[in-house]
Nucleic acid binder design. Structure first.
Length: 400
RNA sequence: GCCGGAGUCGUCUAGUGGCAAUGACAGGAGACUGUAAAUCUCCCCCUUUUUAGGUUCGUAGGUUCGAGUCCUACCUCCGGCA
């Protein structure tokens, strides 16, 4: 029986946990480290799949919660799976929906607090989600209908959607939850749910042998706590997952060491995916500490909101100074947008609220982050990672 | 010429005699990390670091403790009649 999924490490960066490799799936191979753009509702907002492929995207990640609510997993299954449905022939991922189910309630807008644990910014009480040890009952953000996810249900949905790589259903805690709550969450939910996700996943892979086999990543939690991160990574690492997602709340300034704790405990020969990370400094820190893939909405979202990446940092294209600036957005960028359009034109499109603004900005931002990760991958292979990182970070964060 | 109506922050607009005065747009700045996001926040008469001060609702007077609001005249615009 052919394994659906194969991860090979081709080179390592000495003195670090960084590695470059390949991740084979039934829909193609991903060169790692890799950034995976997010197309939550089976579309990367404002781009056609062809445009997305042209930015350099090797895969796309969609969301089980959103696709479950609409159009419903049956329809995607009937279409032949996510890739066929959205006309994307390369590899696909789906997130379990755990993040959405939880973040719409207790953690809404407060899940990943990068600045700390200021009690003044504590999240409001849960209003859409209620968590118990068996699963989560929640209200649809679309119409308030009551729904329930359990690990089994999430896996059933993810198998109907049919992405190459799926994630276990986990509990998302926040930085505001106590240490005791974090332990209780790992012991009573995230870890048992991982085992249940894995069992249901195996059953479904066997039952649905007419479809390409899917892979399942377990999701490590533990917030900012070293003992909990290590414990969670070790616990999940002993289970037969195809890879691992590193998730949950964490302080931005500690993202590197937190990644390292998990990488040191996880099996060396399986891929590690950072959930929801894409800022350049975070990507460098995570790769250096053993991360292989990333997904994030940020490049697309901030792009639609008028913020474009440059090697000198992120800038808002609606700034007055760009109104009459006829240079390409970034002379050193080889994306479609920079090859063909000026800053003044982009400024005009955003000010006019023209739809093309979203498309051109998204193309640039996705390409920027994808290219960055490509360059990092190459720097691991030729051992220039540290100088490349130092140069990039200095230019990106200090020159503006 | 007569009768009626109207003049408020760049634009449109709210405004019972009682706090520079509503909202929208335009304009300026910022934010966004497993997408409830083509979204959100702040500024937007002048000066000031501020709790402050100054000057304002077509113009000029008046009534009043107090006027964007009431009265008078004038100016401008829009209807109607000549």
């Amino acid at each position: 029986m052919t394994k659906a999924f194969k991860f090979t490490i081709n080179s390592r960066l000495s003195g670090s946990l960084a590695r470059a490799g390949t991740l084979e799936t039934p829909h193609g191979t991903i060169e790692t480290p890799a950034f995976i753009p997010v197309g939550t509702k089976a579309t990367l907002k404002s781009l056609t799949p062809e445009q997305l492929a042209d930015t350099g995207a090797q895969a796309v990640l969609a969301n089980a919660y959103h696709l479950y609510l609409r159009p419903g997993p049956d329809i995607i299954d009937q279409a032949g799976g996510l890739g066929a449905f959205m006309n994307w022939s390369r590899p696909t991922f789906t997130d379990s929906g755990g993040f959405q189910v939880m973040s719409l309630g207790v953690g809404y807008k407060k899940v990943i607090d990068m600045t700390g644990t200021d009690p003044e910014h504590q999240p409001k009480k849960a209003n859409l989600a209620r968590i118990d040890n068996d699963g989560v009952t929640f209200k649809s953000h679309l119409n308030g209908d009551l729904h329930r996810f359990t690990p089994e249900i999430s896996m059933q949905i993810q198998h109907q959607i049919g992405a190459d790589i799926t994630f276990a259903f986990d509990e998302l805690t926040t930085l505001y939850d106590s240490y005791d709550y974090q332990i209780e969450s790992l012991n009573n939910r995230t870890h048992p749910w991982a085992a249940r996700s894995l069992a249901e996943h195996r059953r479904l892979n066997a039952e649905r042998s007419h479809r390409p086999p899917q892979a399942l990543f377990g999701v490590v939690q533990g917030a900012n706590y070293e003992d909990l991160r290590r414990k969670s990574a070790k616990f999940l690492g002993n289970m037969d997952f195809d890879g691992f997602g590193l998730g949950g709340a964490l302080e931005k300034s500690r993202i590197g060491e937190i990644t390292r704790w998990m990488s040191e405990e996880l099996p060396e020969d399986k891929p590690r995916h950072m959930l929801g990370i894409s800022e350049p400094d975070d990507i460098f820190d995570c790769i250096e500490n053993g991360a292989d893939t990333f997904d994030c909405v940020s490049p697309a979202r901030v792009g639609r909101n008028g913020a474009l990446y440059t090697r000198h940092g992120r800038v808002n294209i609606t700034r007055q100074e760009y109104k009459t600036d006829f240079r390409p957005f970034d002379e050193t960028c080889d994306c479609y947008t920079c090859a063909n359009y000026s800053r003044a034109y982009l400024s005009h499109l955003f000010r006019s609220k023209e739809l093309l603004a979203n498309t051109l900005a998204t193309i640039h931002n996705e390409h920027f982050i994808l290219k960055l990760v490509d360059d990092i991958r190459n720097s691991i292979a030729d051992d220039s990672f540290y100088s490349f990182k130092a140069e990039f970070v200095k230019e990106y964060y200090e020159s503006r």
